[in-house]
Design a protein around this nucleic acid. Structure first.
Length: 478
RNA sequence: GCCCCCAUCGGCUAGUGGCCUAGGCCUCCGCCCUUUCAAGGCGGCAACACGGGUUCGAAUCCCGUUGGGGGUACCA
């Protein structure tokens, strides 16, 4: 029943941190492979030796693992296949499909600016293609080492049926012969990339739109070596809030930063899937399995999308709530360990507190500020304290709460709630008026987990002590 | 300069000629939840870039303009 086995690939160049744009490309390839039961090939394009680093490879591997993107073949590296690129280039020269080019960078620049001036496309003139043997010998004697250029037939046009953009066409006369092997004998991206895809029998090339205009040149390589052509699908770019290509100056753009800030991999995957793809007109929160089941190329959008951190944050909250309590606790503990938080040293306490914050957090990084008062002494937020001090009902609220809580026999959330509501009736104070000061008294803030659960976890003595302590402020400050 | 791509609320998007006085989600604003709130519930603001066609009928098709993006390297 599967027609043609799908074979896709993700070929990052290990020259820096894995960008969210690259991660999205990896994700779409992975989703497509998993959805179709196909194969995902991982390969590192490290022919740019000056910029490629082993650290970047490790980092990319860790990020993919964290995101839960696994691959079926590889990882391979282009530097392992150097001989292959060179011998293929030589064969193309022997076949007359490529030729040595002796032009220097300066000559090329001059040519380009001249064409620029004339309003012509900036393509290579092809002058070295017509060199005589004698001229070649002369250049060699001058010590020039040639690069190899592939002959690009200027006749007609190159047409593809892009999987997500439809028909795209280019005038072949505007392409020009391009370099496939540098003068140092290393291959260019335009050459190594298609050759590797051919070797891996890739059926679908799904990549960013920034690579759309390099398609004709790569197709020329397929044709030169007589390989069957793949389908191409160019994914929309991810933009920053200013609609420019997303970059460092927009803030966090490496996937690791989001991991370190306490985002869940599932939330990041869900969010990334939604930039450029949608399932229908109403589904937003999806698990990894749902994404795999629903992902199709037909629903990928061709227009670029802005990276919206606010929505990622919200989605992360949704995914935090989707976790089972046990899983939430372990994710939280893992995050605290990673951050080197002091709270990480009290895993039992973390496990006790986790359930009462799971409904409220959007990011794991909020935990410490949100529930730190349950781990040690309170740190009073000045603003919160002032609100209590300015409240004429506060002294009465604190005193009645203290008195009521003192009478609680079994110190659990239910009994605590009953006692505090009783205090409301007795004093005639509205719950929000009475509970507010109590909250500040025990947590030091106006924002905290559920009040009754917090009191229970804090313990009777500590709770009463904190309420009394805040009450004393009225004596000294009032 | 030249080539290519894109164009629905502030953001992500649904919409493939009539179901659209354009739907959902995020943000923002307001209200509610006899517990604050960053959680939950409810409600509100807010868009088919512009101009021509085609058609009985256009957000949807065609052309142009404008705007944005990408490419134009011995980077990938």
């Amino acid at each position: 029943m599967p027609n043609e086995a799908v074979r896709v690939r993700f070929p990052p160049s290990p020259t820096g941190l894995l960008h969210v744009g690259s991660a999205r490309t990896a994700l779409y390839n992975w989703l497509y492979a998993r959805h179709t039961g196909g194969v995902l090939v991982l390969r590192f394009e490290d022919t740019d030796r000056a910029r490629s680093t082993p650290e970047a490879i490790d980092q990319a591997l860790r990020v993919l693992e964290w995101l839960g993107i696994d691959w079926d073949e590889g990882p391979t590296r282009q530097t392992e296949r150097m001989d292959e690129y060179v011998s293929t280039a030589e064969r193309l020269v022997a076949d007359g499909r490529a030729y040595p080019c002796y032009c220097t960078a300066e000559e090329l620049d001059a040519e380009r600016s001249e064409r620029q001036k004339q309003g012509l496309p900036l393509t290579y003139s092809g002058r070295c293609r017509r060199l005589t043997d004698a001229e070649r010998r002369k250049f060699e004697e001058e010590g020039r080492t040639p690069a190899i250029r592939l002959v690009f037939d200027p006749a007609g046009e190159t047409v593809i049926e892009d999987v997500i953009r439809g028909v795209v066409r280019w005038d072949n006369a505007l392409q020009g012969d391009f370099i496939i092997l540098r003068s140092d004998r290393t291959p260019t991206y335009q050459f190594a990339n298609p050759l590797d895809d051919i070797a891996a029998s890739i059926t679908h090339v799904l990549r960013g739109e920034d690579l759309l205009s390099s398609t004709p040149r790569q197709l020329a390589v397929y044709r030169a070596v007589g390989a069957p052509e793949p389908r191409f699908g160019h994914l929309p770019m991810i933009l920053g809030p200013d609609k420019k290509k997303l970059s460092k100056r927009h803030g966090a753009v490496s996937v690791e930063e989001f991991r370190d800030r306490g985002y869940l991999a599932d939330a990041v995957v869900n969010y990334l899937a939604l930039i450029g793809w949608s399932f229908d007109d109403r589904t937003t929160v999806m698990t990894r399995d749902e994404l795999v089941e629903r992902f199709t190329l037909e629903r990928v959008n061709p227009s670029p999308g802005v990276f919206d951190e606010a929505k990622l944050e919200w989605l992360n909250g949704e995914h935090l709530r989707l976790l089972t309590p046990g899983r939430f606790t372990s994710e939280l503990q893992r995050y605290l360990d990673l951050e080197g938080s002091a709270l990480a040293a009290q895993p039992e306490r973390v496990a006790e507190v986790a359930p009462i914050v799971q409904e409220k957090l959007r990011e794991l990084s909020q935990f410490e500020g949100f529930a730190g008062f349950l781990f040690g002494p309170v740190e009073y937020d000045e603003e919160a304290v002032r609100r209590v001090v300015d409240d004429p009902d506060a002294p009465r609220a604190l005193e009645s709460a203290r008195a009521a809580l003192e009478q609680v026999a079994d110190w659990d959330a239910e009994a605590i709630e009953e006692a505090l509501r009783g205090a409301c009736e007795e004093t005639g104070l509205k719950p929000r008026v009475l509970f507010g000061p109590v909250r500040v008294a025990i947590s030091g803030r106006t924002v905290a987990p559920g009040l009754f659960e917090s009191l229970q976890l804090l313990g009777r003595d500590e709770s009463l002590a904190r309420i009394a302590a805040l009450g004393r402020r009225f004596v000294t400050e009032g």
